[in-house]
């Protein structure tokens, strides 16, 4: 009986110490990891979306509380005027979460670009959403009021062959991001003046 108690106690203590330690490590490295991801994953995506911007969108960023989530917005100055923002949101793909970065022009209410950041889709099929530029190019210059759908569902986006679910997920995520955009547009317009 004594043994039994000892086992339980030791295991419990070990687990809780380990849990506490990991939580603090997680907190300690969180900011740094975010920075690294910005630099190596989101950075290139933002750069392609906000191509031609004269500033550095990664440093010119601000955060807005949207319901439960805090979102980062990256500002791009195109033609000398800060009127374009890029932000990331997540949707459910075929193999897990898909991160999609979209860029919107505030003046014209138009998409300037879409880029997949993180994903765990099937290599060669769904992964093309990130690798094949012709898929994401289709989103370019769609209006924010258009409904974003694949052709099978009556939309205008040609799905990647063999990866309908991924294509749909990307479209859904873009649609969701646009909803968010419309909802917080006044705030965005307010914030962007600072740049």
């Amino acid at each position: 009986m004594n043994d039994m108690i000892k086992m339980v106690v030791v295991l419990t203590i070990l687990s809780s110490v380990s849990g506490g330690l990991l939580a603090s490590v997680h907190d300690g490295t969180k900011a740094q990891i975010e920075n690294q991801q910005l630099k190596f994953v989101k950075g290139p995506a933002i750069k392609t979306i906000l191509k031609g911007s004269t500033n550095d969108p990664i440093t010119d960023r601000f955060k807005i509380q949207d319901g439960d989530v805090e979102r980062s917005f990256f500002v791009g100055k195109i033609d000398g005027k800060a009127n374009t923002i890029a932000f990331e949101s997540f949707g459910k793909g075929f193999g897990g979460d898909i991160g999609v970065m979209i860029g919107v022009n505030l003046d014209e209410d138009k998409l300037v670009g879409v880029s997949v950041t993180t994903h765990s889709e099937t290599p060669g099929l769904g992964a093309k959403a990130k690798e094949d530029p012709s898929f994401s190019a289709q989103f370019k210059s769609l209006s924010t009021n258009d409904s974003i759908k694949v052709t099978n569902d009556g939309g205008s986006i040609n799905a990647i062959s063999g990866a309908t679910i991924t294509s749909r997920a990307v479209c859904d995520t873009v649609g969701k991001s646009l909803e968010t955009y419309k909802k917080i547009k006044p705030q965005l317009a307010e914030q962007i003046k600072a740049f």
Binding site: L11, L14, S15, S18, L21, L22, V25, H26, T29, Q32, I33, Q36, Q37, K39, F40
Partner: peptide, 19 residues
């Protein structure tokens, strides 16, 4: 448990400094 703790620490550290 001990090994896994260290592995997760190393994972976080590598993610933070050698991405």
């Amino acid at each position: 448990i001990i090994i896994a703790t260290f592995v997760i620490i190393v994972e976080h550290l590598m993610q933070a400094y050698t991405y």
